[in-house]
Structures are given as C-alpha cells and as structure tokens.
Amino acid sequence: MTGDLSFRAGLKDVLPTVFGYIGVGLAFGVVAHTAGIAWWLVALMSLIVYGGSVQFVLATMLAAASPISAMLVSAILINSRMSLMSMTVAPYIKEESLLQNIMIGTLLTDETFALSMNKVNYTDHKLKPAWFHAANVGAYLVWMLATVAGALLGGLIANSNAFGLDFAAVAMFIGLLYLQMIGDRSKPLGRQAQVVVIVIAMMYVLMRFFPGATAMLIATILGCLIGMGVERTHG
C-alpha cells in the first residue's frame, strides 16, 4: 500500500480482499441455491442487502420460513457494528459533499473499512472519494458476481471449501490487524496489543452467552472503552 489516493490505486489496494469475497461469495451462492432461492434473487440480495454474514443468516431463515420482522432484527444485530465503522470513517471524509458521504457509506464493508483505516497510515490521515469508490465498487461487483456464480454452479460444487478459499477473509483480517498495529503511530504498540488480547479474551467469554455477531459488537465497544481508559490514565 502507498500514499496514492487515485481511483487506480483504489483498485490495486482492493485486490487482496477479492480472494475473500470470491471464497465466501461462492459459498454463499451454494448455500442460497440449496435453500431454494432463485439465482436472480441471490444477485438482488447481494446488491441490496450486501452483507456477508447477514446474507448467510437470511438464507437459513428464509428456508425456515421465518417472519420478516425476525429476519430484520437479526440483520440489524449482525450489522450494527457497521455504524461504528462509518462513524470512524466520518472525520476523514467530512469535507466531502453529503452525496459523496452517502455513496461511500452505502458501499462500506468490513473489508473496505479495514483497507481505508490502513490507507490513512500512508496518506497523512487523508482519504479521497476516488480511492474509496474504486475499493468499494470493486468489492461490490466481485461479491455480487461470486454469489451469483455460486448460485448457478450450485450443485456442481460439492464442497466449495475444499480449496481453502473460505479462509481468505480471515487471513486478510489477520494481515490488516498486524499492519494496523505497526502502521498506526498515534498509539504505542504495547497499548494496541493490550486491546487486541483483551478483545480476544472477551470474545471467548461473550460467546458463552451470545452468538458471534452480538459478541463482536459488545467486545468491540468494551475494547474501545478499555483502550480509552488506559490512554486517559497513561496520557
């Protein structure tokens, strides 16, 4: 990653996330196909709902003929962390027009959020719409195409996990976490490592009581509060 904030640089920077989208997207397409969702509805879901874990849960709940209200609550719970992410991005694009803000927010994902937070370590804490749109739209199209491919190939891919592609997204977040820790010079490495260890430990305890997505939200909020507390006492 470099300090270049052009559209081209955005396309280049989003490349490592593409493997994750293809792996998870194919898997989702297969699951949706198995749940009996038509391929064009898979495409629409990827374009309109656009959220990895939410879409998996929806496919499962649709197959079980769940009420729409229940699916709505689940979707909001799973994705409420997105509000934290867009709030974190907000100061970097505050000077851009409202329309640009809305367009960037609309296509924001875990992955492009992560990329943008890494990017600012190279750009003197600046982000540009051109770079953000390239990363966002690249991710959006790859996700949609991968899910449709999965839905169409459906029965043909007996085990879409066989190649290890499903691990691409996890590997990417491991890389992003490490790069973030060494890249963000505003905080000592030790304090960041402290927050990471605390969040992982809290996740273990929280997942005793809550499903993963809810645990993630609580652990993130507590982790930020603890980081803040440490920063305040140590200056």
Partner: peptide, 17 residues
C-alpha cells in the same frame, strides 16, 4: 478517542469470532 480504537478492536473481534 473511543473511535480511534475501533479498527484494531473490530479486527481482533472478527478474527476471534
């Protein structure tokens, strides 16, 4: 200040999950 910890906290939570 709270939001400045969001990236690492969220990445750690996603990995842990």
């Amino acid at each position: 200040q709270f939001l400045s910890f969001v990236p690492i906290a969220i990445f750690a939570a996603i990995i842990a999950e």
